[in-house]
Design a protein around this nucleic acid. Structure first.
Length: 578
RNA sequence: GCUCCGGUGGUGUAGUUGGUUAACAUACCCGCCUGUCACGUGGGAGAUCGCGGGUUCAAGUCCCGUCCGGAGCGCCA
C-alpha cells in the first residue's frame, strides 16, 4: 500500500484510522526514549510519535532532517493540553507502527523547516538560495507563491473560456523584427547564416488571428527580451496575452477589469471594486510623477509654475514647469540631499526645499517663495516642501520618484490592492538620440482617430488608443487598439521613418494580412510575473518564478548560459570570434 | 557601459580610532533525557575574514585592483 493521504491533510476525522504517509522529516525531537517526527509534504506537517517499544524505534533513531521516509501508523487524538494550534494537523498525531527510509539526505545548506510550522524562515542571501534552488523551492513561501500562480492561471482560463476566448499557441521560433527590445537569436541549422528570433511578444501573431476571424484569443505566453535585468524584469517572462475583434478601447478595459476582479476574488478572496479609476497619462504624470502611479497613498504633486512665473527667483521664473510636494514631515538636510540624488537620477535639474516654521518659510529657497503659496499648499507647521523646476517630463518624474520614496520611508503606503487604468498616452515621442519620432507603445497602435488630422503636422499632439493597467504602482499590463487598415499602418510606418521597402521587407506579412479584410481589434498583455509578485507582496519576480535568472542573466541551477561544443557551432555554420 | 551597496565557520550576524586566541545564534557530530512541538541539557568539530597587491611593527578593519552578488541609471516597441 502506498500512501493513503497527505501528511498535511490528517485531521480529527481520521482518528482511529490506519494511515500510510510519505514525506520529508521536517524536524526530529529525540527525548531520549520517545521520538517525535514532524513529517512534511506539500500540504503541511504532521507529528509522528515513535515509542521506545515500537519495532521502528531503531530506524527512527537514525533519522535526520530532510530524509524521505514512509510511515504506517494509527491516527490518534492528542491530549487536550498538547494540541498545537500553530499547525493545521495540531489536533492529532500519528503513532508509528512501521517506518521505512526511502532516501537519506545530506545536511541542507540552509534551514527550511521553520516556514512549515508557521514561522518565518531565517533570511538567506539570494545568491545562496539560487545556487541551491531545489532546497530553496522546498520552502513553504515558494510553495505558496507557485501554487498561487497556478490558481491565477486556472482562474484566467476559467474566466476567459466563459467569455468565449480561444487559447492558441504561437511559435517560439519566429522572425526577428526591427526596433523594440533586443532579440534573442537562434541560429538555423537548415539555413546556415539565418536566424530565428524568440518572440518579444505574440503581438503580430495575435493580430493575424483576429484577421483570420478567431475573434477572441488568449495565451499564457512566454516572451523573450535580451535586455538587462531588474527586480521586476527577466529575459524570459510570462504574459497573459489577449486580443479581441470588433471592440473599442472601452470594451477591452471593461473585460479586463472584470477579469482582474474575478482572479483577485478566486485567488485571494479579495473584492476589488469596479470600475477601476482612470487617469489620463497627463494626469498621472502631473499628479503622481509617474505613468504607473502607486495609488495606495496620496501625497500628490502640486503645480506651482504660475506662482513663480516672472518672479525674482531666476531658476524658477522662466521654466516650463515647477512642481511642489508637501511632505508631512520635517526632513533633514541629509535626507533632502539623498532625495535630490534620486530626483536627479530621473533627470530633474535639482531638488529645492523650504520648511514652514513658526508660521513662516525658512531654509532653502524660503526667501523666494510667495507668502500666498503657503496657504494654497496647505503646508502645516514643521512640514517640508520640495520643489522641482525645469522641463516638464524629467521634472515631474524626478519628483514622482521622490514621492514614491517618501511614501515608503514615511510608511504612507497602505495595505491592499490598488488598480487603475492610465489612458490617452501620446502616440509618439521624440527620440533625441536618433532625431526622429518613435512610438511609445508599438508601431501597430492606433492613433485616436479624433487626432488623426495632426498626425503629420503635430505628431506630439496625437493621442494613442493605448492603455496601461497599473497594479500597486507597477505596470501590470498594457495594450492598445490596433491599426486595422493598411493605409493607416503604412502612414504610421512612414511617420516612424520606415521606408516602404523596409516596411514590405520586415512587416510585409502584416500589411498583406491587413489588406484581406481586417476587423477592428485590440487587446492587452498582462505581465503575469509582476501580477503574482504583487499578489504575494514579493519585491522581486524571482520569488514567483520557479527557476529564475539572476541579475547577470544566469540561471544558476544549471549554469546557463554555457559554452557549447565546437562541433555544435560547426553544424550551425558558426564560429566564435577571438 | 555607468552609479551605489554588500561579501567574516554550512547559514545568518558581531567585530570600536588598525592591536595579540576572530565573538554570538543556528545548523552539524557525540553523550544524557519518555510528551516534545524552535524540546531540554552537557560536550565537540567547523572561518587562512571573496581573491590579488599595497601601506604599517601590526590589516577582517586603511588604500588600489579584481571577482561574485544585489538595487538603480542607460536599455526594456
Amino acid at each position: 500500500m502506498r500512501r493513503t493521504m497527505y501528511c498535511g491533510s490528517v485531521r480529527e476525522e481520521h482518528i482511529e484510522q490506519k494511515v500510510v504517509l510519505e514525506g520529508w522529516v521536517n524536524r526530529r525531537r529525540d527525548l531520549g526514549g520517545l521520538i517525535f517526527l514532524d513529517l512534511r509534504d506539500r500540504e503541511g506537517i504532521v507529528q509522528v510519535v515513535v515509542d521506545p517499544g515500537s519495532p521502528c524505534y531503531r530506524q527512527a533513531d537514525r533519522l535526520r532532517s530532510e530524509w524521505v521516509i514512509r510511515v504506517e501508523g494509527l491516527v490518534r487524538a492528542r491530549p487536550l493540553e498538547q494540541v498545537n494550534p500553530k499547525i493545521a494537523t495540531g489536533q492529532v498525531e500519528v503513532e508509528a507502527q512501521q517506518l521505512e527510509v526511502l532516501s537519506e539526505a545530506k545536511t541542507l545548506p540552509f534551514q527550511i523547516d521553520a516556514g512549515w510550522r508557521g514561522e518565518e524562515d531565517p533570511k538567506v542571501a539570494e545568491e545562496v538560495r539560487l545556487r541551491h534552488r531545489v532546497v530553496d523551492l522546498r520552502r513553504k513561501r515558494l510553495h505558496e507563491n507557485l501554487r498561487l500562480r497556478h490558481k491565477l492561471i486556472t482562474a484566467i482560463y476559467r474566466f476567459l473560456d466563459g467569455e468565449g476566448f480561444v487559447s492558441v499557441e504561437t511559435p517560439f521560433l519566429t522572425r526577428s523584427t526591427p526596433e523594440g527590445a533586443r532579440d534573442f537569436l537562434v541560429p538555423s541549422r537548415l539555413e546556415p547564416g539565418s536566424f530565428y528570433a524568440l518572440p518579444q511578444s505574440p503581438q503580430l501573431f495575435k493580430q493575424m488571428l483576429m484577421v483570420a476571424g478567431y475573434d477572441r484569443y488568449f495565451q499564457i505566453a512566454r516572451c523573450f527580451r535580451d535586455e538587462d535585468l531588474r527586480a521586476d524584469r527577466q529575459p524570459d517572462f510570462t504574459q497573459l496575452d489577449l486580443e479581441m475583434s470588433f471592440v473599442t478601447q472601452e470594451d477591452v478595459l471593461a473585460l479586463n477589469e472584470r477579469l482582474a476582479a474575478y482572479v483577485m476574488k478566486e485567488t485571494l478572496g479579495v473584492d476589488v471594486p469596479l470600475p477601476f479609476p482612470r487617469l489620463t497619462y497627463a494626469e498621472a504624470m502631473n499628479r503622481y510623477g509617474s505613468d504607473k502611479p502607486e495609488l495606495r497613498f496620496d501625497l500628490e504633486l502640486v503645480d506651482v509654475t504660475e506662482a513663480f512665473r516672472g518672479g525674482e527667483f531666476r531658476a524658477f521664473a522662466e521654466v516650463e514647469t515647477v512642481k511642489a510636494l508637501v511632505v508631512p514631515a520635517s526632513l533633514s538636510r541629509k535626507e533632502i540631499e539623498g532625495l535630490e540624488a534620486l530626483a536627479k537620477s530621473k533627470g530633474a535639474a535639482g531638488l529645492a526645499w523650504a520648511k514652514r516654521e513658526h508660521g513662516a518659510w525658512s531654509g532653502g529657497i524660503a526667501r523666494f517663495i510667495p507668502e500666498s503659496l503657503g496657504q494654497r499648499l496647505e503646508v502645516g507647521e514643521g512640514e517640508t516642501v520640495l520643489f522641482v523646476a525645469g522641463v516638464w517630463r524629467p521634472s515631474v518624474e524626478g519628483l514622482g520618484a521622490v514621492r514614491l520614496e517618501l511614501g515608503r520611508r514615511l510608511g504612507l503606503i497602505g495595505p491592499g490592492y490598488a488598480f487603475a487604468w492610465v489612458v490617452d498616452f501620446p502616440l509618439l515621442e521624440w527620440d533625441q538620440e536618433n532625431a526622429r519620432w518613435t512610438y511609445m507603445h508599438h508601431p501597430f497602435t492606433s492613433p485616436n482617430l479624433d487626432d488623426l488630422e495632426h498626425l503629420e503636422t503635430d505628431p506630439a499632439r496625437v493621442r494613442a488608443l493605448a492603455y496601461d493597467l497599473v497594479f500597486n504602482g507597477s505596470e501590470a499590463g498594457g495594450g492598445s487598439i490596433r491599426i486595422h487598415r493598411r493605409d493607416l499602418q503604412e502612414r504610421m510606418f512612414a511617420l516612424l521613418g520606415i521606408s516602404a521597402e523596409e516596411a514590405q521587407e520586415k512587416f510585409g506579412f502584416l500589411l498583406e494580412a491587413l489588406s484581406y479584410g481586417a476587423p477592428p481589434h485590440g487587446g492587452i498583455a498582462w505581465g503575469l510575473d509582476r501580477w503574482v509578485a504583487n499578489m504575494t507582496e514579493e519585491d522581486s519576480i524571482r520569488e514567483v518564478i520557479a527557476f529564475p535568472k539572476n541579475k547577470e542573466g544566469k540561471e544558476t541551477l544549471t549554469g546557463a548560459p554555457s559554452p557549447v561544443d565546437p562541433a555544435q557551432l560547426a553544424v550551425l555554420g558558426l564560429a566564435l570570434k577571438e
